[in-house]
Simulated assay, not measured.
Amino acid sequence: MRHVLVTGAASGIGAAIAARFGGDRLTLADVDGDRLAAVAAGLGAECRVGDLAEARFAESLVDSDVDVLVNAAGIYPATPLLEMTAAAWDRVQDVNVRAAMLTTVAFGRRCVAAGRSGVVVNISSGAATRARPGAAHYATSKAALEMLTKACAVELGPHGIRVNAVSPGFVTVDSSANPVTEEYAAAVSVNPLGRRGRPADIAEAVHWLAGEQAAWITGAVLRVDGGSTAGAPGLPLHWDGATAVQEGSSHV
C-alpha cells in the first residue's frame, strides 16, 4: 500500500484525485477544514489543514514514508492587469508554484535520505500556454509550474524520483474558492471531443502517471483537455470557395 499525499483535496479535482487513490493510505491537505474533513471521512484519510502559502506548513506536509506526492492545490482569482498588486500576484505564486516547490524538495530529501524512489504529479493548466484577461498571475504561475516540473525531473531522476504534470482543460467543478461564470465556461469549454471535462478525467491521468505503467515517464506534461490544445473545431473554413485546388495555384 502506497502512502499518497494530495494537496488541494477538499473539492474539485483534488478531491477526485484523492478518491481515485482510495485503496492507498492517504494524507489530504487543504485550507478548507470542513470540506476536507468530509472528503477524508469517506476515504479513511488523515487531514492536514493549513494555508499552503505559508512555507512552514507546506514543508511540514511530507512525512518520511510518503510514496506519491500530488500537488493539486491552486487558486485562480480574476484580477485585471491594471488592478494587479504585489500582494495579489505573490499570493497566487506562493500557492500555485512555491508550495509545490517546497513540498517537492521536502519529498525529494526524504526519499534520498531513505534510499527509495518516489513520484510527484503536479496539476498545471492550459493557461500555462495561453493567457486570458484577468489571469496574468495565474497563467504565469502555471507556466512556472510546468518548468518547475521539468527542472525537478532533471535533478531528482538520478535518485529514482519521477516528476510529471497533468494539464487539464476546462473542468466543471463545484468550488466556492474558485467560482466561474457560465458565460466563461461556455467560452472556454469548446474542444474536439465536444464536452467539458470532469474531475475524474484528471484523476485517472494522475493515477496512471503515478503507477508502474508510466515508469519510464518523467518531466512530461500530459494535456488532458478534450483536444483543445490541438485546435478549435468550431472555427469556419478559412476559405468559402471550392475545395479543389486549382493547378498552378500557390499557398502560404
Rank of each mutant, 00 (worst) to 15 (best):
V31E: 00
S124M: 08
R198A: 14
H137K: 00
L209Y: 03
S125T: 02
N122A: 07
R132M: 11
S64Y: 04
G74M: 01
G197H: 10
V171W: 02
G33C: 07
Y76F: 11
A131E: 05
L52Q: 01
T79A: 04
A200E: 15
S125E: 09
A29T: 05
A135N: 03
N178M: 06
G74V: 00
P179I: 05
N164T: 04
G108N: 14
A187Y: 02
A200M: 11
P236N: 13
L193H: 08
V95S: 03
D94T: 01
L36V: 13
D65T: 08
R48Q: 13
I202W: 03
G197I: 10
L222A: 13
N122P: 15
V245S: 08
E212S: 11
A40V: 08
V224Q: 03
H137F: 01
T172D: 15
V163A: 12
L235N: 04
F107K: 12
G226V: 08
S60G: 14
Y138E: 02
G227L: 12
G44E: 07
S189C: 13
D51G: 00
V154Q: 06
A72N: 10
G74S: 05
D90A: 15
S11K: 14
G248K: 01
V119Q: 05
D51F: 00
T140F: 06
A16V: 12
E204M: 04
G50K: 04
V68S: 01
S175T: 14
A19R: 15
I17C: 04
A187M: 10
S249I: 04
